[in-house]
Design a protein around this nucleic acid. Structure first.
Lengths: 248, 248
DNA sequence: GACAAGTTAAATGTACACAACATATCGAAA
DNA sequence: TTTCGATATGTTGTGTACATTTAACTTGTC
């Protein structure tokens, strides 16, 4: 119950689920650290000490180093000899490129191959919708972040084209935390409202069996979400240049 | 001179070029092993012993293990505790999925962002065209494989959208060796002829500045190449079921 | 007071010995 | 002859001590 580890998902990382104990531990640690990074528990620039992590998880540095190597290959952290391991940040130019690509990939989601959507999957998305409704009253950014991640992971896991699925997940994990950084400064209620509508529309499209529409819905929401974030950033930059109230 | 290591390419793997000696060695080993896998020097199923590699490159197993971990994250090898490390194979279903995705990504090549094409890049592609012309008389599959890889790497490095560039390279390295396995059974002269036309057309499009056309040309050639390979496979399968001359 | 060289501390990279694991081999009993 | 099992062998995973590198601190001099 503490760590579900999602054993219903046959291919979260690359291929079949963990067979040996070592691979199981590897995937567990990988997911834990990845979530900490993507949920801003480890913000960009945060220092990750191998020794500290080894002590926390009761192992030596060796398995930790393997996990860190994987996270490095995914572009989430950066290691420098003699300096340390830090969570990477993404500049606005790169972020813009990633989002433009994500728009195109979203269109392909249900078109290259039909979505793999069982009744259990639909039920899971329904729970996300319920969680989102409750969240409209709580308004906790942390819970919003986790719900967003849970929903996206669940949705992406339904993508029929395997390489597209992996790439979509990869790009999401690379950029979600950057978007998340802007959430506190945004109108949280509005964001939650938009997100709730996205979940609702996606469920509707899946229920009807219009898999192409799922991609279009996601594309539209990704686009609008990115636009709101960009607008916010420009407003902040403008306000800073005028009133000099920013931290910089 | 022995190992060019392409220091003109600012971002072959993930980010900036190797700064420390350790990272330089890592990238060198990574490129060497990746090329061996993708050029079928290590065919699918081939066993890669950590101890052997360590001895060959004059290091301990530790740096080797780091490189193997990276190759594993790229889907080129598979490691199993107590068994060994083997080069992965790709079944036809997965191969079909990858090619369908590559078609779509090719269309985006010059559309998401303009190609980064300098005069030096054009000159490099010209040398590829020259090499291809010479190859029409030599007809060496190995050289054809290397030329194909050199051209694709050079072309992909011009993709303006960084994440699309990385993904395109990644998918190419994942599947090129599978296509390469079928080359010996194909009409090599025809393949070389097609490839030469592709290079010529790409150069022409780049010279005119029609970056969108570059993607369309590549898409067309990828599509036709995959069709020829599929046709060949079906012919082999049909012949095997009729005459029982196959290895199976 | 400012600057520069040496020193110290902390981090990742490396090497090696050992543990855990899977498979092949050999042999004895039914 | 067949089958089951113990054993031998080879492979990757882990733990640990040490080397290498970087940045910050200290200290001495101009």
């Amino acid at each position: 119950m503490k760590t579900p580890t999602t054993d219903r998902d046959p291919s979260p990382l690359s291929e079949a689920g963990a067979s040996t104990a070592a691979q199981a531990r590897f995937q567990r640690l990988h997911k834990i650290l990845r979530d900490r990074i993507c949920l801003l528990d480890y913000a960009p620039g945060h220092h990750l000490g191998e020794e500290d992590l080894a002590q926390e998880f009761g192992t030596s540095r060796t398995p930790i180093r393997r996990v860190l190597g994987w996270l490095e290959s995914e572009g989430l952290i950066e290691r420098r000899h003699g300096v340390g391991t830090i969570v990477t940040d993404v500049d606005l130019r790169s972020l813009d490129q990633v989002y433009r690509l994500r728009l195109e990939l979203a269109s392909l989601m249900g078109r290259l191959a039909p979505m793999r959507c069982s009744d259990a999957d639909l039920a899971l998305l329904q729970t996300h919708l319920t969680r989102c409704s409750k969240l409209r009253q709580q308004r906790e950014p942390t819970e919003f972040a986790r719900l967003n991640m849970d929903f996206c992971v669940a949705l992406f896991s339904m993508i029929g084209n395997a390489p597209l699925r992996e790439i979509t997940e990869r790009l999401y994990f690379q950029t979600s935390r950057i978007w998340l950084k802007s959430v506190p400064a945004m109108d949280l209620e509005e964001e939650i409202s938009h997100f709730e509508r996205q979940i609702f529309d996606v469920i509707e499209a899946l229920r009807v069996g219009d898999h192409g529409a799922v991609g279009d819905i996601c594309r539209a929401h990704i686009s609008m979400s990115f636009n709101r974030m960009t607008l916010l950033r420009h407003a902040q930059a403008g306000g800073a240049s005028l009133g000099a109230t920013a931290t910089a």
